[in-house]
Amino acid sequence: MGGVTSSMAAKLAFFPPQPPTYELEEEAESGLVTMTRFPHRENVEIMRLTTRRNHQIVAVYVRHPMAVSTVLYSHGNAADLGQLYDLFLQLSFHLRVNLLGYDYSGYGQSAGKPSENNTYADIEAAYKCLIEKFGAKEEEIILYGQSVGSGPTVDLASRLPNLRAVVLHSPILSGLRVMYPVKRTYWFDIYKNIDKIPHVNCPVLIIHGTADDVVDCSHGKQLWELCREKYEPLWIKGGKHCDLELYPEYIKHLKKFVTTVEKPRSERPIWRIADRVEPSRRSTDCMEPPRRSTDRKLKLRNKEPPKTEHRYSSVDGFDKIKFSLDHFEKSRRSVDCLERPRKNMDQIERGRKSVDRLDRIWAG
């Protein structure tokens, strides 16, 4: 049953760009691996990693000479490394960090098929590479998860007690909650961030656009409420699901966050530390009976929940929501950018233009 459910969820949640936006080339003599369309850089290394599920996935490592932190970046649904390469270079440069990004199984030139369990194995392989190949330490690593990438990011962060920090960019409460405002966690749901986020012990920054029509901003706000060690969130007014990097406050807030978490704990501002909650069950254990979700506990604690302007806000009560045909049509789209990427190269060109615009914004 669990395998069937995972297969169905994968069809709904994952839409890798087809065809992939890059290819790999390897020099016979030196073994140097490069990505087509991008010239080789001395501070960039392209590599293949083997996961515990025996899939070969592709990763990009960008080195910064003054870095004291390393970012492990888990991208969104309808993207691959070819679209994110320039963004990785910009983030490494402006944040002064080393950065490793990777393609999930079935994305880009990574082998295998996309699934929840495969993404967990993928991020573990990337993390292991940082530790064993590049000498990073757990307490120096910042996990960054965008949209669907918040799933493997929160899962790994909940199992690593000494991480430097976590960034969640347009995150989801869970896969099912993107489509329907359910009040409890069901065994067939995927990426149950709502149940795992209270077990993340490091500072968490959440970034979300207030005009996100794919993953409502209320997802980010509720996850922030459930964080144990909260950092000042960034709610980008008018920001949508795939354009937050184009807002000047995005990079400014990220810089401030990275600078803060790199300081000794004694020099950091005092953040609110939430009470511990009962241990969360594993997302992959589909045979356990469903239990009440953590969002129910939050509602019981706060007798007078604050009012919000967001459509699906759990603190307003899901029972008051009226569904329209448009909403159900939206729910059929994927967990991330949802619409299957076009097979022509228009999307790639738009991505490159966005990065060029991002350069101009950050340089100003």
Rank of each mutant, 00 (worst) to 15 (best):
G3D: 12
V4G: 05
S6D: 14
S6Y: 10
S7Q: 09
K11M: 10
P16L: 02
P17R: 07
P19K: 09
V33L: 12
T36Q: 05
R48D: 01
H55N: 13
Y61W: 13
V62L: 07
V62G: 04
M66D: 15
V68G: 08
Y73L: 10
H75I: 05
N77D: 12
R96T: 14
N98K: 05
D103I: 11
Y104N: 09
G106P: 02
Y107T: 00
Y120K: 06
I123P: 08
C129K: 03
L143Q: 05
Y144T: 00
A157P: 00
L160T: 14
L163D: 06
V178G: 06
N193A: 07
H199Q: 12
N201T: 08
I206Y: 10
T210F: 06
D212E: 00
C217R: 02
G220N: 01
C227M: 04
G238K: 10
P248M: 08
E249G: 03
L254A: 05
K256L: 13
K256S: 13
E262N: 15
K263N: 06
S266N: 00
R268Y: 03
R268T: 00
R268Q: 15
W271E: 07
A274F: 05
R282Q: 12
P290W: 05
S293P: 05
D295V: 14
K297T: 03
L300V: 11
P306D: 11
R311K: 14
S314C: 02
D316Q: 12
F318G: 13
K320N: 11
L325I: 09
R332S: 04
S334A: 15
V335W: 09
D336W: 01
R342M: 13
N344T: 14
M345R: 13
R352M: 15
